[in-house]
Design a protein around this nucleic acid. Structure first.
Length: 401
RNA sequence: UCCUCAGUAGCUCAAUGGUAGAGCAUUCGGCUGUUAACCGAAGGGUUGUAGGUUCGAGUCCUACCUGAGGAGCCA
């Protein structure tokens, strides 16, 4: 038994002919009298096993034949290339150790047939085991890793410390919680956001960094997650088209375009979900819309140089109707102006004393943005709903599991 | 909070106001290359809840509960 070396399914291809063991779960079982095809998964992948009655001890065949879905097992045997097997590799099973057999009285609830979203998300703790969800979360991981790598390559390990002190080029990456009553396919009450902030930077710098980041991120997913994108049946040509420069339009222009296409929007109003879809419908790249009316943007946005009814904010809208994935812009650096805006918005000045302080001691033009991870992953994977992009989505009225 | 749609077997769904059904899952039987395997059989139901109309309600009406995704609001 110790002759069998434990391997992952993902590495099975490089262990052809060796005695190996795989520790995992039964994904599905097809049997035909004297031959059995168990599908096994171990978290790294899925492999088909094969077991012929005449070639193994009777007990091995019986144990395998009676396994139930998602029973935990350790199987031993040898792997080889096999055209007829899904995935191209197959394991000839020689013995099996049942760790736990799922009892037939309480079968695994998620069967290989159709289920509705309500049922699946009530069983999210099990749903995560399925192939599709697995692929989505691997893409999510790649997106997160790309974001971290992007900022590391921008500044460098040691340089990063210097920039933080000298230039304040930093980023924050973590969960954000919002309690708005938004029940849509684009909203979660907990979502993850990366927020770079740069000193001595303006709106143009934000647009440049945002564009570079998106191109870098989609490039990395294409490079490292081809298999997962195939599992998700994602049209990769849509992602291959993501290259700079992205189209850039002003809010003024966007309103004119929308009105020309029948939208009800008036200058001064924010985009609705359908407006975002109209704007991106005929674009294969994300588009950048900037210079929004100050009326519906937060108090800290820097006004435009040439007019004071718009501010230097920018939204990046993903193609294919996925909506806003980035929002950001240039912040007010003038202490007098910031105070004025705080008063105009009737905000408690005391609560912002530290924020105002930043403008007293060596203030510089600075800018930054926030990018929503789940919306990016939903777009890259081509998903119908954002809730599939996080292991345990927190939504309005949804806390379990 | 408002609007729209939906709730029938463990799951996905059928059923002109007239005997509640199929596929999958489970159990039993068959099958040596299956690809969400297939073939045969069995078990499985207070049709979301409470009222109402009717000779008769899964179906029509009212209220409520639960869910979905839109609006508002937000990212």
């Amino acid at each position: 038994m110790s002759d069998y070396r434990r391997i992952t399914i993902a590495s099975a291809g490089s262990h052809a002919g060796e005695p190996v063991e795989i520790a995992g779960w039964l994904y599905n079982l097809r049997k035909s009298g004297k031959i059995i095809f168990p599908l096994l998964r171990d978290g790294s992948g899925i492999i088909q096993g094969v077991c012929v009655k005449s070639q193994v001890p009777e007990q091995v065949f019986e144990d395998l034949k009676n396994l139930t879905q998602e029973s935990s097992v350790i199987v031993r045997g040898k792997c080889r290339a096999e055209q007829r097997a899904p995935g191209g590799f197959e394991m000839d099973i020689e013995s099996v150790q049942i760790v736990q057999r799922v009892p037939e009285e309480t079968p695994y609830p998620i069967t290989p047939k159709d289920h509705g979203t309500e049922f699946l998300f009530d069983h999210r703790h099990l749903h995560l085991r399925s192939r599709r969800q697995h692929a989505v979360l691997k893409v999510r991981h790649e997106v997160i890793k790309a974001i971290r790598d992007y900022f590391v390559t921008q500044s460098g390990q040691l340089y990063n410390e210097a920039t933080a002190m000298a230039f304040g080029k930093t980023y924050c990456f973590g969960p954000t919680f919002r309690a708005e009553k938004s029940k849509t396919r684009r909203h979660l009450t907990e979502f993850w956001m990366v927020e770079p902030e740069m000193a001595y930077a303006d709106l143009e710098d934000v647009k440049r960094v945002a564009e570079e980041l998106i191109v870098f991120m989609t490039g990395r997913v294409l490079e490292n997650r081809k298999t997962e994108l195939a599992t998700l049946e994602r049209d990769v040509s849509k992602l291959e088209a993501i290259k700079g420069p992205f189209p850039r339009i002003s809010y003024d222009e966007a309103v004119k375009i929308l009105q020309g296409k029948g939208s009800e929007i008036q200058w001064g109003g924010d985009f609705g979900g359908t407006d975002e879809t109209i704007l991106t419908a005929d674009q294969e790249r994300p588009i950048m819309v900037d210079r929004f009316p100050s009326s519906f943007k937060a108090f800290y946005f820097q006004p435009a140089e040439d007019r004071d009814d718009v501010v230097l904010g920018v939204d990046v809208l993903a193609p294919e109707g996925y909506g806003e994935i980035i929002g950001g812009g240039q912040r007010i650096h003038d202490p007098e102006l910031l105070l004025k805006r705080i008063e105009e918005h009737k905000l408690p000045k005391e609560a912002f004393d530290w924020y105002i302080d930043l403008r007293k001691y060596g203030t510089v033009p600075h800018a930054g943005f926030g990018m929503g991870i789940e919306r990016c992953v939903a777009w890259i994977c081509g998903l119908e709903h954002i809730r599939e992009t996080i292991a345990f989505p927190r939504m309005l009225y949804t806390l379990r599991p």
